[in-house]
Nucleic acid binder design. Structure first.
Lengths: 193, 193
DNA sequence: GACGTTCGTGACGCCGCGTCAATTTCTCTT
DNA sequence: AAGAGAAATTGACGCGGCGTCACGAACGTC
């Protein structure tokens, strides 16, 4: 039995971590990740500067933690949608739709006011790519998907998804992007088979 | 007549700029963009620290200049290949092939040893996206391409290209990636029409 | 060759970085 | 309840990078 033993220590520890992450979200959104400093984050907090380093090694690690958080939040939903799919169309459209809707709902935080476009994939995000690949392979094995190179297809889907996400953030309808991406991949796969 | 007037001043100015860019390429490749500092770059140069700021405002601006350089180097080739294309297949495959081969030939510099994956699009790169879109629209107008939403298709192609580029850098054959991407888009478009 | 302009130089003040000894806060034992 | 020990917080500190600027050298012009 893993007794959580929610001692006072463990509690404030979790709290402090969350306080820092929340402050970082706000600071990054406000002044942009590039310009923000560890000091800016900690100043938006009642904690002392040294305390920051008890929780994170750097600004980058905080950013990763935020990305990881988002990735872990959406991955189960994506998995479920894909595993439940009984057709290629369903597999693709539910995946794209879930992804776009998720990003749109968090538009505000992700909208880090950067000078130029910029993307950084944290380990959990990469793990999400691996999950998509696994799901694709399973779907192929189940006969739901035509047999194609899962690695290359994963890259294509991921690339399309992230790039189309920009358009969604710029005002495109989630359904438009979903329909287009789904049709493209679907048609391409069927043509290849 | 734009007289270049290659005076001594203009010459050393161009030289210095190139010296800094070359040093930056090397420094970024060696220690990674994130860890590198303006001082590191200028130290890899016979110039003084203050001189750097006569040419660039920051480390980021140097990085952008490098990206811009690459984008400007490949864009004419891409344009030409696309404009000469008389079939959808040709339009897509020559574009993908050119892009992948180009990146592979510069693998060393782009291989900035970063902690996690990271991408930043400079203005000239974005302009390249706009060019692709224009060429797609022209091709549609010419009747070479089926009529689809050029904006969404641009995003899909761009996303796929950049993501597949990762695989090429990881050892995938250029031809494999080219064939796959071409077939996918081609099939998708034809299915949509 | 003399004047005006442009550019390279490096020292300077400022600030963020990551550390660490001192201190406070919590936990566990008796 | 008290006290010892462990763990976490604090902020001051030294280090180094940042961007600037007054100075002098190099250059173009007449």
């Amino acid at each position: 039995m893993e007794e959580p033993k929610a001692s006072r220590r463990d509690l404030t520890k979790a709290q402090n971590r969350e306080v820092i992450l929340t402050a970082a979200r706000s600071v990054f959104a406000q002044m942009g990740f590039a310009k923000a400093t560890v000091r800016d984050v900690i100043r938006a907090t009642p904690l002392a500067s040294g305390t920051f380093y008890n929780y994170f090694k750097s600004k980058e690690e905080v950013y990763q933690a935020l990305r990881d958080e988002a990735a872990l939040a959406i991955r189960p939903t994506l998995r479920q949608a894909r595993l439940a799919a009984e057709t290629q169309e369903e597999f693709l459209s539910s995946g794209f739709r879930t992804f776009f809707a998720f990003l749109q709902s968090r538009q505000d935080e992700g909208a880090v006011a950067e000078a130029s476009r910029f993307r950084m994939d944290s380990p959990e995000v990469l793990a999400g790519f691996a999950e998509l690949r696994e799901d694709l392979e399973k779907a192929i094995a189940r006969g739901v998907f035509a047999p194609v190179d899962a690695g290359l297809l994963t890259s294509c889907i991921v690339g399309m998804a992230f790039e189309l996400a920009q358009q969604v953030k710029a005002g495109r309808e989630v359904e438009d992007a979903t329909r287009f991406a789904t049709a493209l991949v679907l048609g391409g796969i069927n043509a290849a088979a």
